[in-house]
Design a protein around this nucleic acid. Structure first.
Lengths: 107, 107
DNA sequence: CAGGATCCAATCTGATACTG
DNA sequence: CAGTATCAGATTGGATCCTG
């Protein structure tokens, strides 16, 4: 789901559609500090398959939450970083993460 | 997905699993102000089927984000409200909603 | 290194009809 | 009013193998 395909009933619906999905939150969160290479992301997002990582990154890119920079080197190097729109989401994810930490420790 | 079934890789993952899903955010948001009856929710969440509304409410209840109160009257009356854990999520949803509003107007 | 391609199983969602 | 039940279709995700 990318923003071009979203038909939302309200802003909450819209926002959840843009950052929902199994891995989008985690990916945005691990990219928060700067440039991450594909392989770094792969190691950081434990359990993700290359297919899902690539697919989700492509959606985030089409959505302009993440930008992708390809270096013409051998071996190839590709770096991902947040766009300014993506960075705007980090405070919310941080808040949600704190909530999650608290709840996990309570159960 | 309810919290009992969640096996999360990190707190972000955990939190998204608890509030992810097509309607959870919207439902929490419309219940934010107090008690809502089933029929009110049905009208407020445009496009939801009774099946999905019931199913999602049951998950939110099992997750202790929403509480359900049945009044033994004829005709039946059932009211839903946020638990304190559910209320803790409202600031997050509110912020995310503002972000969504801004982005919707930009496209 | 950073992916693309394919196939398939599991999950989720919608539509419709019915009920205490 | 506040749900259930059933079936079918759509979507998502995982496993595996391949490549510039």
């Amino acid at each position: 789901m990318t923003k071009k395909n979203i038909t939302a009933h309200c802003a909450v619906d819209y926002a959840f559609k843009r950052i929902g999905g199994k891995y989008k939150g985690r990916i945005l969160w691990v990219i928060r500090d700067g440039f991450m290479r594909y392989g770094e992301l792969k190691r950081a997002i434990v359990g993700i398959s290359p297919k899902m990582l690539t697919q989700t990154l492509r959606e985030l890119e089409a959505d302009e939450l993440v930008s992708r920079k390809v270096y013409l080197e051998v071996p190839p190097r590709v770096e991902y970083s947040l766009t300014s729109t993506g960075e705007e989401l980090i405070p919310f994810i941080k808040q949600l993460r704190s909530w999650g930490e608290k709840k996990m420790s309570q159960n």
